[in-house]
């Protein structure tokens, strides 16, 4: 008898417990809008440090900008987007909304203020930089680098045969940094003009130049880190200062020369959101000290936060990014991909 009573009590307790648990789960999960644990942030690969700093407070994903862009472009009107905040560099959100508009879907991303910035740099093998400078009439810029790409060093004044061809590298244009660098290179080719269109990109001279620029080694991983660990791989690497500055500062081998080609172009970090409430909470998180410090520690220039080692604050940044318009950058992404084949 006692056993039966206990069994009934236990059964009742389990039912009550299950109801309590269910109620809790419902409270936490309803629409994903009431608890901070349901916030979902996607960071572009170059901004992984921010997602790592916020991991545990929110759900985080790190992936290349083009991967997120492809997901967002195909979200149907009225469907819930697969994220609450996308931390990326401009103008990737505009590229997504542009693609959505062209596909007949509603643009849905709100873009906040610039959170951090980083200029585009060229890291050049120290020994060979003088030879390149002579070729470039003392000012090593994108136009000259592209012209020299693939040329045998021995064909340049004071170049040596054992150096092989001039090898140029940069991250792929499918990444946040890579697209910024490609934009800076194109602006450099067109003498600093950011007022570009598809017509300029179709120019045969530009396309030939782009093919030379893209003819460098295809080595997995970061070209800048590859250059630092095996200097024979690349002679010139385009990168963001956020990566290059700290990495060169801590590198043990012969450090490459860091140049800021003119006009200085910048990768500007923005937060794109798709939902008012959740978006505001993500924005508050990213405006917080932890996120700002994480950005600065990762080499980004953040107003009011001391920069990481290797960030040359004496180089002032322009007021705008000095990049072409979003649709032109999107077209450039395709052109770079074609040229690299």
């Amino acid at each position: 008898m006692v056993t039966r009573v206990l069994a009934v009590l236990a059964a009742v307790a389990m039912v009550v417990g299950a109801i309590v648990v269910r109620a809790n789960l419902d409270n936490n999960g309803a629409g994903g809008t009431t608890s901070p644990t349901t916030l979902r942030i996607v960071c572009a690969t170059e901004l992984a440090a921010v997602c790592e700093a916020l991991d545990g407070q929110v759900g985080t994903t790190v992936e290349d900008a083009s991967t997120t862009a492809a997901r967002l472009t195909t979200v149907g009107d009225g469907q819930e987007p697969p994220l609450d905040g996308w931390l990326v560099t401009a103008p990737w959100p505009e590229i997504v909304d542009g693609a959505r508009s062209r596909a007949g879907s509603e643009p849905f991303l709100d873009v906040g203020d610039v959170l951090a910035r980083s200029p585009v740099v060229l890291a050049v093998n120290t020994t060979r930089s003088k030879v390149l400078a002579a070729r470039c009439n003392a000012e090593v810029g994108w136009k000259c680098v592209g012209d020299a790409a693939g040329v045998a060093w021995q064909d340049l004044p004071n170049g040596r045969p054992e150096w092989g061809p001039v090898k140029v590298g940069h991250p792929p244009a499918t990444t946040a940094g890579g697209l910024t660098i490609a934009g800076a290179a194109a602006v450099g080719y067109f003498d600093g003009s950011t007022d570009l269109s598809a017509t300029e990109l179709a120019d045969r001279g530009f396309q030939n130049w782009l093919r030379r620029l893209e003819s460098g080694p295809q080595i997995p991983g970061s070209p800048l880190l590859t250059m630092l660990s095996r200097p024979s791989a690349f002679d010139v690497v385009g990168a963001l200062e956020a990566e290059a500055g700290p990495a060169i500062a801590t590198a043990s081998a012969t450090k490459p020369v860091l140049l800021y080609p003119s006009p200085v172009a910048t990768a500007d970090v923005v937060l794109a959101t798709s939902d008012g409430g959740a978006g505001r909470r993500v924005a508050e998180l990213l405006a917080g000290t932890a996120a700002r410090r994480a950005l600065a520690a990762a080499g980004w220039r953040v107003d009011g936060v001391p920069p990481a080692a290797g960030i040359r604050t004496s180089v002032k940044l322009p007021t705008t990014s000095n990049l072409p318009e979003p649709d032109v950058l999107d077209a450039l992404r395709s052109a770079v991909e074609q040229a690299g084949r």
């Binding site: 307790a13 417990g17 309590v20 648990v21 809790n24 936490n28 985080t60 994903t61």
Partner: peptide, 20 residues
């Protein structure tokens, strides 16, 4: 999916009955 799913063992613990 490349996107996170909510943690089923979430950290927002609340006081519950012993049976629960």
């Amino acid at each position: 999916s490349g996107f996170p799913t909510p943690n089923p063992y979430g950290s927002n613990r609340k006081r519950r009955s012993p049976v629960g």
